[in-house]
């Protein structure tokens, strides 16, 4: 399995109450699968993505990535696994404003100690059609272009698993559609496992499997609706 979650629980405590976000959640994502997790705002999609990617740790339960139990690792251990195996695309792009497009793409390659970082980054930007925009800063790019840079950054290190959190959430419909096509196309070329969090049903429909997060649990979705 590329990613596996076993009996995953996540609670947050505030001063007067304990809020359950995820409850006894199980999930298995085979290598190469394209999975969509859908749900309403506040249903805990991003929290689940954070746990699966090791950005956060669960209250209880296990998360395994390529057989490695990342939920038992410390922050640095999880960071190392992320660096080796994962790529990320976020709703708000998360490009560093003081770095150019090229530098933003180079960053994860450099972190992985890749000697050929610049060439790989240029190639990745060319794949997303931005070879003319290498030295532009994020503020000089449109929203769609910024998300393309983010996709290039996510795919440049050739990750085994790509996490995407509402990748079209900040874009207009037409641009969003272009980004979906680009993301899926590149994902298919690379054979990467894709875990996509979205509330956009049309985007989810393009995935092999769709799960809906509701009341802290996942439910399988079929074309005709939701099944238990």
């Amino acid at each position: 399995m590329a990613v596996e979650a076993i009996a995953l629980n996540k609670h947050v405590s505030s001063s007067d109450a304990r809020l359950t976000i995820l409850e006894h959640l199980d999930l298995a994502v085979p290598h190469g699968e394209r999975l969509a997790i859908v749900g309403r705002s506040g249903s805990g999609k991003s929290t689940l993505l954070g746990l699966l990617a090791g950005l956060d740790s669960p209250s209880s339960g296990k998360v395994l990535v390529d057989g490695i139990e990342i939920s038992s690792l410390d922050e640095d251990g999880r960071a190392a696994v992320r660096g080796r195996k994962m790529g990320f695309v976020f709703q708000s792009f998360q490009l560093l404003p003081s770095l150019t497009a090229l530098e933003n793409v180079i960053l994860p390659l450099q972190l992985a100690g890749n000697a050929d970082a610049e060439a790989l980054a240029k190639a990745a930007l060319e794949r997303v059609g931005l070879s003319q925009r290498l030295s532009h800063y994020p503020r000089q790019l449109s929203g769609g272009e910024q998300q393309r840079v983010a996709i290039a950054r996510a795919l440049a290190p050739k990750p085994a698993i790509l996490f995407a959190d509402e990748p079209t959430g900040n874009l207009d419909a037409a641009t969003g559609q272009q980004i979906i096509e680009l993301l899926f196309g590149l994902n298919a070329e690379d054979g990467t496992t894709l875990i996509l969090v979205t509330h956009d049903n049309s985007m989810a429909a393009a995935c092999q499997r769709r799960l809906q997060l509701n009341a802290g649990r996942l439910h399988e979705m079929h074309d005709e609706g939701v099944a238990a």
Partner: peptide, 14 residues
């Protein structure tokens, strides 16, 4: 923000 992104892409605390 920069370091959060770097942490996300695998940078260790050290």
């Amino acid at each position: 923000d920069t370091y959060a992104v770097m942490r996300c892409f695998g940078a260790s605390k050290a």
